[in-house]
Amino acid sequence: MTTMDHLAEQTKLERLLQVDEGSLGFVAEQEVQATRAFRQQLSEFYYQRHQDAFHRLAGLSKLLPISASAKLAMNLLGPVLAAGIACELPKDRAAKLAGRLPTDFLAKLSLYLEPSRAGAIIAAVDEDHIVEVARHLIAQQEFITLASFVTVISESTLRRIIQQVGNDGLSLLKVGFYVEEKTALNNVVTLLSEQQRRALFLAADEHSLWPAVLSLLPYLNDTLQGEMSNLAAEGEEQARDKLVRAVAQQGDWYPLLLSWTRMSQENLESSIRLPALHEEALLRECMAQLEKHNLQQALPNFTELLTEEQQALLA
């Protein structure tokens, strides 16, 4: 079964290989962990092929005044090489150099920066500068890059970037979708205002991205799972009905069922009585999935909450 994690990995590999989005569709059929490991090994392989050259260019850059190094990076090397060289510079020198580079160039450079190598440099760069770079990335819809930096920036920087995204639910969703270390989602979601959380759900509904939103739920802690599940359950019935149908079509029921275990009794009742779940095939599939994921115990009164009509369908 292809989940949203499979699709995220496919897109990240396509980005690394600089091919059109969607052109490597078969990659989504592979194990997520295997594709992730392959992408990381490939990224390291490409970097190591040129590490010596980056190191030499970094050596040259160190001989020049910072302003000349900045000119060298912008006018001759370009963002791809500048990103590699930055990783070979001492972090203070790299941070000073970043301070001399215009934010649009830094935004381009960040597309090629490997966060696992550049974490220390990013931490040394002025917060205002990072927020400004993020503004460019948001405008250019570079969500993979933005998401890759979530784990290496400070909480205060992250907070300011999230404020900049505002109530653009689709952008928030895409960042969450591409975050590499999913545990970092807890920090991101904690920093979202209620309005931003609602915007996330609205975007999921408008752009038929419910599976993408739901796929993030299992990575959140119990408290956030409860908050997000209850908030989603307070949405319009039509949207929630679409959610169930989207899940049934995609086949990955676990996040939806998990959300039911986290919400209030009242919200659970309204969620399982949606029109979609008054269709026999869908309801039966739902029951089978509850059993498959061993969630009956977490929802002990599930069948009692069903309407008479639903119970008759199952009889």
């Binding site: 600089q18 490597l24 040129h50 050259a53 040259l60």
Partner: peptide, 23 residues
């Protein structure tokens, strides 16, 4: 595709090393 990307990156670095001398 992996090979083609590798070759593109190689070319780019080689060019940059040559051009770096210009400054």
């Amino acid at each position: 595709q992996v090979l083609s990307t590798m070759q593109k990156k190689d070319e780019r670095v080689e060019k940059a090393l040559s051009r770096a001398l210009d400054v």
